[in-house]
Design a protein around this nucleic acid. Sequence first.
DNA 1: TAGATAATTAACTATATAGTTAATTAGTTA
DNA 2: TAACTAATTAACTATATAGTTAATTATCTA
Lengths: 105, 105
Amino acid sequence: MESVFQALSSTVRRKILAYLSKTSLTAGEIADRFEISKPALSKHLNVLMNAGLIESDKQGQYVHYRLVKNNLFASMNDFLVNFCPEGRPLKMESAEIEAGKKSNN
Amino acid sequence: MESVFQALSSTVRRKILAYLSKTSLTAGEIADRFEISKPALSKHLNVLMNAGLIESDKQGQYVHYRLVKNNLFASMNDFLVNFCPEGRPLKMESAEIEAGKKSNN
DNA sequence: TAGATAATTAACTATATAGTTAATTAGTTA
DNA sequence: TAACTAATTAACTATATAGTTAATTATCTA
């Protein structure tokens, strides 16, 4: 939980997540979308990995990163549910999504 | 948005929000629940204020703090909605809560 | 009004974070 | 195998963050 919110507290990292929301990207493709250096990006990716918000697989010399949506949703809802009873419906919603049984309406 | 996630990235501040989820508390009552000094707590409260997650009113020499639930929910959902289409139902749910029209089931 | 209490502000310290450039590791290809 | 490319690690710097104690401001009460 700590690592998730820590990860989300950076604008750069939230942008990375946004880019990955549509498709997976290589480290280099992500870096191209920012002004900062590749090593700096690499560290941001590492923070997101440690938080479990993204995952990677190496294909040849490229490392592909993709969003772990379920973890993002689960973390947010676990958090919200602690703060008010009204949070419960959100948790149920999240559970449905997590189970992959939800249509897109 | 930046200030909200920055605020949420601290365990102490998330605990403060949790304490305030049930009732409003004075600065001193909050400080009593932590090991850190009152000035340190005061700064955490200030961070939460700047993020719009809590609000205060002064009654005599006491300052009462309370959670702004709607802002917490709205921020989280605004964020989630950007990451996946499945987020939309959460947003709708949140809007209902915000409008204060939702029963507690 | 003098003293006590609640809270914040000021000044400071230690550590964590985010960035840099240079070096390294691993994989590809001429 | 030599050179190139992708990515990460290493070493370092500057700034932000979280804490401390001491001082200040505001309010209450004997």
